Amino acid sequence: MSPAPRPVVTAYVALGANLGDAAQTLRAALQALDAAPGVRLRQASSLYRTAPIESSGPDYINAVAEVGTTLNAPDLLSAMQAIENAAGRERPYRNAPRTLDLDLLLYGNAHVASPTLTVPHPRMNERAFVLVPLAEVAPHLVDERALTRVRDQAIERMA
Score class of each variant (00 low, 15 high):
96 A>Q: 07
63 A>L: 04
103 D>E: 05
81 Q>S: 07
119 V>A: 02
101 D>A: 10
104 L>E: 01
117 L>I: 11
80 M>R: 06
116 T>G: 11
78 S>L: 14
76 L>T: 08
104 L>D: 00
76 L>M: 08
80 M>C: 15
68 G>A: 15
112 V>H: 01
118 T>E: 13
72 N>I: 14
98 R>K: 13
65 A>Q: 05
84 E>I: 08
99 T>Q: 05
118 T>I: 15
120 P>S: 11
118 T>Q: 14
71 L>Q: 04
101 D>C: 09
81 Q>E: 10
73 A>Q: 00
91 R>V: 11
95 N>Y: 02
87 A>W: 04
112 V>R: 00
100 L>Y: 01
95 N>H: 08
68 G>P: 05
71 L>E: 03
119 V>H: 01
65 A>N: 05
97 P>E: 04
104 L>Y: 01
83 I>M: 06
83 I>N: 02
72 N>Q: 13
108 G>H: 02
113 A>Q: 14
68 G>R: 11
102 L>N: 02
95 N>V: 07
77 L>T: 04
113 A>Y: 01
72 N>K: 11
108 G>N: 06
67 V>W: 00
97 P>L: 06
69 T>I: 11
104 L>R: 00
68 G>K: 09
97 P>R: 07
96 A>L: 10
78 S>C: 13
81 Q>V: 11
120 P>N: 11
73 A>T: 03
88 G>N: 12
121 H>V: 12
97 P>S: 12
72 N>H: 14
109 N>A: 14
95 N>E: 02
97 P>H: 05
92 P>V: 12
100 L>I: 06
98 R>P: 01
80 M>N: 05
108 G>P: 01
79 A>M: 04
70 T>Q: 10
94 R>L: 10
72 N>M: 09
109 N>D: 15
78 S>V: 12
102 L>E: 03
112 V>W: 00
90 E>N: 11
106 L>D: 01
96 A>W: 06
84 E>R: 06
120 P>V: 12
122 P>F: 02
115 P>G: 04
116 T>M: 09
90 E>Q: 15
100 L>C: 07
108 G>T: 06
70 T>P: 02
107 Y>I: 04
100 L>F: 04
85 N>V: 14
86 A>M: 08
90 E>S: 14
68 G>Y: 09
103 D>A: 07
102 L>F: 07
106 L>E: 04
91 R>K: 13
